[in-house]
Every structure is written in structure tokens, then in C-alpha cells.
Design a protein around this nucleic acid. Structure first.
Length: 163
DNA sequence: GCCAACGTTGGC
DNA sequence: GCCAACGTTGGC
């Protein structure tokens, strides 16, 4: 079981869209390092859902990997903006993964908070110039971030809902 | 909309 | 294999 962070521009596809659709293909990734991360995702992995290029940017919720990476058919769809002339069904080059909605945080965790939280300096998304749309998250980082998303946990015996 | 940072491309 | 030019990303 691994943890990841998936970046998306909410104007293009937001967590609200995933909540409505329940499932989506995480496709159109055209960066080799991000692709390699996508390829190593397995069913059950949990992902932080990050909104970029918006005000404020930050982590808005969670989704879960439901199917392992498979060839991304948009790569050989000439009408797609993700078309890649060097890709074909025989040589797929790019992959996609299916994810399902898990949770929308009551309050998002803004980038500004991530940056100022001790223990998150290693988080890729807080590092200047970080452009990867799929990055791994360490369990230690994951725990800190969920603590930020659910500040009432651990106080007054508040219970955490699951699922 | 600006622009720094980054990845990719291609001439050499 | 170097590296300048280019396109894209994403915080601001």
C-alpha cells in the first residue's frame, strides 16, 4: 500500500467532478517520471487530491486507486489533446490508472499551510519548481497531512469516520 | 498575466 | 553528448 499525490487544475477536473462521477481515468499524463509513478500504483493505494492553478492551491481530499496502470488510449487518438504521434497500441508509451472518489475534506489544506508545517519540507509539492502531476508521498507525510485535514482528531475523543 | 523553473527537442 | 531554444507548469 502506497501513498501518492495527484495534481489537477480544478477548472479542468476537480474533486467535485470526481465526487459526481465516482470513478475516473487518470490519463493524459505526458511526463516520463510521472508516468513511472503511475505505473507503480497498485489497487488500494490512496492519493491526496491536489488543486493547482487556483486560489488557493492545496489538498482538497482523497481518492483511491482501483485499477492498475494500463496503456493510455488517448496517446493514439489523433483528436485528443494528449495525442502522441510516437505512441501506438503496439507501443503505448503512456499509461492511465483508474481512481475512485474517497473523501472531500471539510476544509482544504492550502499549499501555504503545507509549506509552513514542520515535517513536510520533503513533500514534493512544496518544493519550488515542482511540476510533476503524480508524486509519491511518504507515510510520515501522509499522517501529518491527514492530521491537518482533520484537526479535531485526537482531541476531546473525537471520532474519525472511515470509508 | 507574469515569469521562474523545469522537461524535451534537435542542431551540431 | 552538449546545450540553446522552446513549450509547459503553476505560484504569485
Amino acid at each position: 500500500m502506497n501513498y501518492w499525490l495527484l495534481k489537477t487544475e480544478p477548472d479542468t477536473f476537480s474533486l467535485a467532478d470526481l465526487r459526481r462521477d465516482k470513478l475516473t481515468w487518470w490519463d493524459g499524463v505526458r511526463n516520463y517520471q510521472a508516468r513511472n509513478y503511475l505505473s507503480s500504483m497498485v489497487r488500494g493505494d490512496l492519493c491526496l487530491f491536489y488543486h493547482s492553478r487556483c486560489q488557493p492551491p492545496g489538498i482538497v481530499g482523497l481518492c483511491r486507486v482501483v485499477s492498475q496502470a494500463e496503456p493510455d488510449p488517448l496517446a493514439w487518438d489523433a483528436k485528443s489533446k494528449y495525442f502522441d504521434p510516437k505512441a501506438s497500441p503496439d507501443n503505448p508509451r503512456w499509461v492511465r490508472t483508474q481512481v475512485e472518489f474517497v473523501e472531500q475534506f471539510a476544509e482544504m489544506v492550502p499549499l501555504e499551510v503545507l509549506k509552513s508545517t514542520e515535517g513536510l519540507a520533503s513533500l514534493k509539492v512544496v518544493q519550488k519548481g515542482s511540476r510533476l502531476s503524480v508524486v509519491p508521498v511518504e507515510e510520515r507525510e501522509w499522517t501529518i497531512i491527514l492530521g491537518l485535514a482533520r484537526p479535531q482528531n485526537g482531541r476531546c475523543g473525537a471520532k474519525q469516520e472511515s470509508g
